[in-house]
Design a protein around this nucleic acid. Structure first.
Lengths: 243, 243
DNA sequence: TATATATCGATATATAGTTCTCGATAGATG
DNA sequence: CATCTATCGAGAACTATATATCGATATATA
């Protein structure tokens, strides 16, 4: 799905990484070096759903779960589930399925959710506040360790139990704690500037909740999260599903 | 991910689109009933991004925009943009591109965002509050007309300028206003029950922000919006993009 | 007015993703 | 102990999506 940006005009160094070299690379990884490379985005997106259900089952004391069950709970085909789980390197046993605890550990390891990653959040508005207060992140290996905003009226206050700091404090804060992940929830007009600051702070991954296409250097990963996308799909299905 | 074998090639129905959008430019047969059927999810998800940029360009006074420009702004290939825009029935002119206002109208019409759809929101927690306060929805043809919660401490209060009502008031409210869209932002434990209530209220589309797989009768569309998905993709890319 | 070219739209190829098919297995069943 | 069967895992077949290629065209430029 993703591909190399081959268009690139006047770029000094266009080629960054050659995907063909992957064989030589050793991710020093926990899960499964090769499977990791093969995992497509579609598969990765489904893993959290499995994880969520697995945790419920674990809480209920189940030792095993079959791909069939995982599938039917999420309206998927069992084959898809088995294929998805294959990327974690775990294999199940016929008639029993997969070991729940083993699967949980494997998925968490695959996504890097086994040990918590710290993040900073920039933009303590409506959405930022909501994310700060969201309890579910601890299950996703995420811990928002610092909140930042440029509004003088917000700076110094406490939001969802977090101290809101001024923007200039972001780089030293991130560097001191070794934080490499940033959540961007500022208004459109401030998005690029805030992203630049994040980059300067050593952030390597930006979870971008603004509809802005950020200009960022190679090596920094941006994940866009746009509510409009989901709403568009819903609207479209509503209009055209019934016929 | 696709529907069922409900292919329906030449259904005489599935029109009823035109009357609304004839006010806009709309040359002959705008959204093109057949193209609509062919629009894949991937395409639909990109339309809002185009729309956003188009509105900016419109504000800057541009009359035309080329697929090339739309593409480069979003790091896409121009071919993809042209293909996506084809589903709206609009065609551009060589060397100039597409007419901005025409495209905006066509995309809005295609998604049903031309006239505002009213929705109810159930679950005035962190996320629900944030969504109630989100200004961007008016650009997406959405208007949250009522907010509901089961918490007695919330009922009767005003959140983001909206009156929070008790759950039993949902069905009469929705039916009175003819609301067919519901936003579900309750805690996991309350999700299914709230969804049942929505269905009983005549809701046809549920925008589900909980990680729960809802049991819903046929005819009701559920769009799941799971933050964990995006975070999973980001985590995965962070771990494996650099090597 | 003639030419150059950016852009469109259509068709073809490549890649990613899903579904189908089937033999193999290990626990359940009698 | 022999048989049954739900499930796994691997590969083939199919579908969706993305990328490449190319002729057609209308505007800008000479």
């Amino acid at each position: 799905m993703k591909a190399k940006p081959q268009i690139v005009k006047a770029g000094p160094r266009s080629q960054a990484i050659d995907p063909l070299l992957q064989g030589a690379i050793t991710p020093a990884g926990t899960p499964s070096p090769e499977a990791v490379q093969k995992a497509g985005a579609a598969c990765v997106r489904r893993l959290p759903a499995y994880l969520q259900l697995l945790r419920v089952l674990q809480g209920e004391g189940h030792e095993h779960v079959s791909g069939t069950v995982l599938a039917s709970t999420h309206n998927l085909e069992p084959v898809i589930v088995r294929k998805d789980l294959a990327v974690t390197g775990i294999s199940g046993t016929p008639r029993l399925g997969f070991r729940v605890t083993e699967l949980i550990a494997a998925i968490e390891a695959f996504l890097g959710w086994n040990n918590q990653t710290k993040a900073v959040l920039v933009g303590v508005g409506n959405l930022g506040t909501a994310l700060l207060g969201y309890r579910g992140f601890e299950n996703l290996g995420l811990r928002i360790a610092g909140a930042f905003d440029s509004d003088p009226k917000l700076i110094g206050t406490w939001v969802q139990g977090r101290h809101v700091q001024s923007m200039p404090k972001l780089p030293p804060f991130a560097r001191r704690l070794g934080i490499t992940l940033g959540v961007l929830t500022v208004p459109v007009a401030a998005a690029q500037e805030a992203a630049d600051l994040m980059v300067r702070a050593g952030i390597l991954g930006i979870w971008n909740f603004t509809p802005v296409k950020l200009q960022i250097p190679d090596g920094v990963v941006v994940q866009k999260e746009d509510l409009a996308e989901g709403l568009a799909v819903l609207s479209h299905r509503l209009r055209h599903s019934r016929s």
